[in-house]
Amino acid sequence: VVDDGDSRHPASVARRVRSHDFGAAAANRAPGGAGPDRAWVLRIAPAMLALPLVSGLIVGNVGDVLAFALALALFYGGMVLVEQGLAREADYRARQLAKAPKAPRKLLGALAVAAGAFVCSYGASSDGLILALVYGALAGLGCVLAYGLDPSRDKGLEPELARRAGVRTDQVIEAITEAEAKLGEIEQAAASLHNRELTDRLARIVAKARAVLAQIEQDPSDLRRARRFLVTYLDGTRDVVKKYTQQQQDLADTELAANFRHVLETVEQVFAEQEEVLKRNETMDLEVQIEVLRTQLEREGVA
């Protein structure tokens, strides 16, 4: 019995730590970030085809040139698909809950690469059909080995957790996707702000909101309350920021600009407290905070 407890405890701690890491990864995820999502071989290697393409142009061999161009286009398309697939996969891995990507992008990318190799071999050299097919198959196989296949299984809530929380996995995913779309809009609007302080503040707000989302992914028991809160605050922030960016030339150093800053200060402060509030399970606090933002938006006249 003691053994059992001893072995179970570290495991559960490890699981919690690991899932926390995933949450943090989700929170730090930047859209379109560089890194492991690049398929470098597919980006660079097909450039080799440029040499015979040029020599084909010099010699004036139209068939070869067309074949090389088509093959290059297919390799390029395959590279784009594989990179999209890698990005989806990274996203999928970073989440606690996720649906498997709908289109198997990495597989489609591998097929495009295989087709590229086939076209190049069959169209531009005197390779027979069989040999061209072999090259195509090998290129596709290499692509699958190098970049793997797409995730195919949905990652859902543990049944026990879902039952206790009284929510379905897709409800959580829907709420989080919705909130993330809004965060994306906020980030986009923030990028066009000319004020460093405000940009930084918005970046902090977005990071904190992502941390809250990661927390909801882990324990969706307060999804309903949290969702109402997120909708109010994210909508509020988004609308205010958008409005401000549209007129920031005229607004600088005016009272309205100061009001805008006040609203963002409130939002940042509330998000900072949010983690605690969600943990405490106190509905009142959330309702109060929702009211606070509403009145402030009205009073400051920024929404």
């Binding site: 040499l51 070869d64 190049c120 290499g142």
Partner: peptide, 30 residues
């Protein structure tokens, strides 16, 4: 299949490079 992900990736990359090099060279010299 009984291969570490790293090895699989390396093998895949090598295979891709090899095939691309072969078809390029064959196309060039024919």
């Amino acid at each position: 299949v009984g291969m570490s992900p790293r090895m699989r990736t390396g093998l895949g990359v090598a295979l891709l490079l090899l095939v691309l090099a072969i078809i390029t060279l064959r196309a060039w010299f024919t």
